[in-house]
């Protein structure tokens, strides 16, 4: 499973993250409000400070450049429809559009 392979070591099986080290993905206001950065971060990584559900996080997250648009769509769909959430299906078109705004860093 993609989530277990690429995400759950840090963000945990239940999407709760780990203390103030790794941010939660479950019920994350940051993911809801930042769809394009969410997709770009999975592929290309991110660094710097972010605030998730009122808590500040600041740790480098390495991306997984090998993820395809289909895999990114599957991961985004899984993350936004798990842990009691129903965000609906994320399409390849949405992923493609998000990626067009971010370049490999």
């Amino acid at each position: 499973m993609l989530y277990e392979k690429h995400c759950s070591n840090c963000h945990q099986q239940d999407g709760q993250g780990l203390r103030r080290l790794y941010p939660p993905l479950a019920k994350s206001d940051f993911l809801k409000n930042n769809f394009n950065p969410f997709i770009c971060t999975m592929k290309y990584g991110t660094s710097g400070s972010i605030v998730v559900n009122g808590v500040e996080f600041n740790k480098l997250m390495p991306g997984v450049p090998s993820l395809t648009e289909l895999e990114l769509a599957e991961l985004a769909t899984y993350i936004t429809n798990s842990w009691g959430e129903q965000g609906g299906i994320v399409t390849i078109e949405q992923v493609s559009q998000a990626l067009s705004g971010c370049a490999p860093q």
């Binding site: 070591n9 840090c10 945990q12 780990l18 203390r19 080290l21 790794y22 740790k59 480098l60 390495p62």
Partner: peptide, 16 residues
Amino acid sequence: FTSCRTICPIMKTQML
């Protein structure tokens, strides 16, 4: 090591 994304986060979860 802190930038490790393979087994270290699991180890730290367990060490907690």
